[in-house]
Amino acid sequence: MNMSFVLGIKEIDGELLYLNLGGAFSGLEQHAPHTLIAGATGSGKSVLLQNLILDICATNSKDMARVYLIDPKFGVDYQHLEELPHLSEGIIIDQDKAISTLEFLVEEMDRRYLLFRDQKVNSLKDYNAKTEENDRLPLLFLVHDEFAEWMLIDTYKQAVSSIVQRLGVKARAAGIHLIFAAQRPDANVLPVQLRDNLGNRLILRVESEGTSQISLGEKGAERLLGKGHLAARLQGESGLIFAQVPFLSTDELIKVTQLIANN
């Protein structure tokens, strides 16, 4: 299983910046299991999300990584990704289906802990090392774009906050990772329970100092250049890391998706 994913090229030294979910890699520490992405229109948020999903799927087989993609905007930015076999549910565009997916992840997390107990291990990596190939468990990624739109609905907000709080405590060892993204993760749509559990912050240009303060923890993201200019606050790293997110054209995206799907 690969659990280190390319975010961009670091400004300070031109080296690749990775999101390390499974351990230290390429001179960077192990980062938090869950991630918040924010960025206004034109900032490169959708491109960063596409890149992460492609990297997950290109470097892990469909049997060892599954992606659940929730998008209130009906998946228009991710239509080509639906061909990826790792997206077993396609793109989830319905609130009820989104809540049931989150509930499934909690149930799966608890089921996995019982399996770990039987095998006397405490992580997915150790469990897979002890079991036969057919019994190994995949990494699970929940990617929720534009979550702010549905978080304005109280029932959805309460359900998501409660479920994420449960997943935030134990999901890493079970191989379950959350990536939540929004244009404006302001205080009314990003409750403390959710914010505290999204330890990695990948912030592109935002519209205001207030949004920067909430998403990044300080002012400054409103002065980023847009088009993939990234400020990353990653658990375990000292200070902000500035980077440039790589860009794929639609034609290139289609080619990469087809390569992964046909491999």
Rank of each mutant, 00 (worst) to 15 (best):
S100A: 11
I176F: 00
G23N: 14
M109Q: 09
E15D: 15
A171K: 02
A171C: 06
Q158L: 03
H31W: 05
G22D: 10
G228I: 05
S249M: 07
S43G: 09
R184N: 05
V121F: 03
V6Y: 09
F25V: 12
V143I: 15
K219C: 00
D135L: 13
L115H: 04
R184S: 01
N197C: 09
L139W: 13
R166M: 11
S249T: 15
M64N: 12
G8S: 11
V206N: 06
K73P: 13
L52I: 10
V76M: 10
L248W: 10
I254K: 15
L178H: 01
F104K: 14
C57M: 00
D13C: 05
G168Q: 00
L140G: 01
R201P: 09
T250A: 12
L19W: 13
L204M: 15
I176P: 00
S100H: 07
S161D: 11
R195G: 04
K10E: 15
T131N: 07
D77W: 02
S26V: 09
L190Q: 00
S212Q: 12
A243C: 10
I56C: 00
V6G: 01
N60A: 01
N60Q: 04
I12M: 06
F116V: 06
I203H: 13
K157W: 02
N2W: 03
I260R: 03
R136D: 12
N20G: 08
Q244L: 04
D118A: 05
P72R: 08
G22Q: 14
T257I: 11
G27D: 06
G175Y: 01
T101D: 05
T250S: 05
A24L: 01
A148C: 03
L259D: 12
L36M: 12
A243S: 14
R233L: 11
M3N: 07
E218H: 01
D94E: 14
H31Y: 07
Q244M: 04
S46N: 10
D118Y: 03
L259R: 14
D186I: 06
T59C: 03
G27W: 00
D135V: 10
F116Y: 05
H34T: 07
I163W: 01
R233T: 08
Q165I: 00
